[in-house]
């Protein structure tokens, strides 16, 4: 996120001008995943949207500490900008109609999911262990295999297992938006008591190329993934 997304000039301008930014190191938190340490000058490795959702979360809150939007895992600059723009729109709507903030947050996320192509029964369905299991699995995007963007959900992927891989990204987006929809304006203190309600109870892992000490290079070469698709 640092070397790819936060280093993007458009992201920097958006965050500095429209948001107040702060961070929390989740090391030691039961909800945190696992990661090898890596240095700031590491070359960014291949990483797909939503990868390492237990390691990074972008959470948009009001100055009073109420959560109104979340996006977990890695987001490339374009995806991060989309999330921030959506958050700005929701926050503006809340300020315009302060009596109905919870409803505004819930409605905005439901509407967004519908626009992204999710069906009503998917949005209304309760979370289940299968979803968590799906999200905890290794995602080919994490090792550089091109995946569809959210707006491309309708496209047909090629190759064996394509629909499964497509569904991983899809489920990540669904789960994040449903969290904000089902818990509108949850206070951050309440959230911190049980962050697993957002990121799940499994343990995900993330490590950069140098942290892997070449292991990921070996994995990628074995999978015959071209270098051009792996580098961003």
């Amino acid at each position: 996120m640092r070397t790819v997304s936060f280093s993007d000039a458009r992201v920097q301008k958006k965050l500095n001008d429209k948001f107040v930014c702060c961070y929390t190191n989740t090391k030691g938190d039961p909800s945190a995943g696992a990661s090898f340490s890596h240095s700031p000058d590491d070359e960014p490795g291949p990483c797909g949207r939503g990868a390492g959702r237990q390691n990074v979360q972008v959470i948009c809150i009001t100055p009073e500490g109420e959560i109104f939007h979340v996006a977990t895992g890695f987001l490339d600059p374009k995806a991060l900008l989309e999330e921030l723009e959506f958050a700005c729109q929701v926050f503006d709507s809340m300020q315009q109609n302060p009596k109905n903030c919870k409803q505004i947050v819930a409605d905005a996320h439901e509407k967004r999911l519908r626009q992204l192509g999710f069906k009503r029964n998917e949005i209304a369905a309760a979370d289940n262990q299968m979803t968590d299991l799906l999200l905890s699995g290794c995602n080919p995007q994490d090792i550089g295999i091109n995946m569809p963007k959210p707006q491309d959900f309708g496209m047909k992927l090629q190759g064996p297992g394509a629909s499964f891989f497509q569904d991983v990204t899809r489920q990540r987006i669904l789960k994040d938006n449903k969290f904000a929809m089902n818990n509108p304006l949850m206070h951050k203190k309440e959230f911190e008591k049980n962050p697993q309600s957002l990121v799940g109870h499994h343990k995900s892992f993330f490590g950069s190329n140098s942290a892997f000490n070449g292991v990921s290079e070996m994995m990628n070469s074995q999978m015959n993934v071209s270098r051009s698709t792996r580098r961003r």
């Binding site: 996120m1 965050l15 429209k18 961070y23 990661s35 972008v58 009001t62 958050a87």
Partner: peptide, 11 residues
């Protein structure tokens, strides 16, 4: 007001 972007990160 401005919204707050709270980044939770391992590290």
């Amino acid at each position: 007001q401005r919204p707050v972007m709270w980044f939770r990160v391992l590290g």
